[in-house]
Design a protein around this nucleic acid. Structure first.
Lengths: 152, 152
DNA sequence: CATCATGTAACATAACTAGTTACATGAAAC
DNA sequence: GTTTCATGTAACTAGTTATGTTACATGATG
């Protein structure tokens, strides 16, 4: 199954921005994510719509974090990137005539819903500030500064 | 994201077999699953390796359930079909140099593992016999017999 | 007005699930 | 034993989706 990495990618970028002054261009962020600037704009567009980041054109333009990292959870970010489906399993036919298939679908769907509920709850329990703290812990452990270890 | 429906499909087929006497051919099962006989063989091969079903060639051949439905859980079936990944989210790079990405990956991976553990636990709590009972409930509700409502 | 950066559409690529074709293997019926 | 039926598999096709890429428009700064 093909995995969706938008959530992972955009969190990576967001955290870097929290540790950098001033706007970052799509090109700079693309280097961090090892991808293409257009991909960055695509995924950041969702965050902008939700008011978590702002973008500016022209000289000195780029992306800026405009939210309180302690007030935004991973669930918010997940929603902002379009809530790509968590579960990679499904069934052939929804709304089947066959009662056997109804029984099977019901059992599986119930489980899928529970799984998704847990996922949402876990995402909602972590803020960007939490991630930032965890990063700082790792930094101390390695005895480096953000600048020293930064990409590109 | 493309969904994997092997688990759903094979459960559908298994339940039908529990309500039918004698071996069922791949062709008959394929009609139920609205798919191709080769696809049926492919997915049933996993169940045969685990000893849940047996196959016989030639005249009067086909597939037979050879396990106790009350002793086999959906987790067993999931394993038998190759444990296709439940979670459709991932990250760009495993084992990243970047400490920011490590922090992000750690948070997400922890959540993914919890989600998968819940999924396994839920599957393990349902046996084929449970599904069969649920089907019978639905049957009574519709006032029909299995034969009357069967496909094809 | 030249440069820089975003905004977006359109197309290309890669990976994967399922469907299909083709043929080999083996068992039962006659 | 030969015909028929059914599984066992490999190889190929098709459809879908995430991501990457190209191209060009829009707007802000110097």
């Amino acid at each position: 199954m093909k995995q969706d990495s938008k959530l992972s990618g955009v969190l990576h970028v967001l955290l870097h921005m929290l540790f950098t002054k001033g706007p970052a261009t799509s090109e700079q962020l693309a280097k961090m994510m090892e991808t293409n600037p257009v991909v960055v704009r695509r995924v950041m567009a969702g965050l902008r719509e939700q008011g978590f980041v702002a973008s500016a054109k022209g000289h000195g333009g780029g992306w800026t974090v405009v939210c309180d990292p302690a007030a935004v959870t991973l669930a918010d970010i997940y929603k902002a990137v379009g809530e790509p489906p968590l579960v990679a399993l499904g069934h052939r036919s929804d709304n089947p005539q066959c009662l056997v298939e109804q029984a099977v679908n019901h059992a599986l769907d119930t489980t899928f819903r529970e799984v998704e509920a847990l996922f949402q709850a876990k995402l909602a329990s972590v803020t960007l500030a939490d991630l930032s703290k965890d990063f700082n812990r790792r930094l101390r452990k390695h005895g480096r500064t953000h600048k020293e270890h930064a990409h590109g």
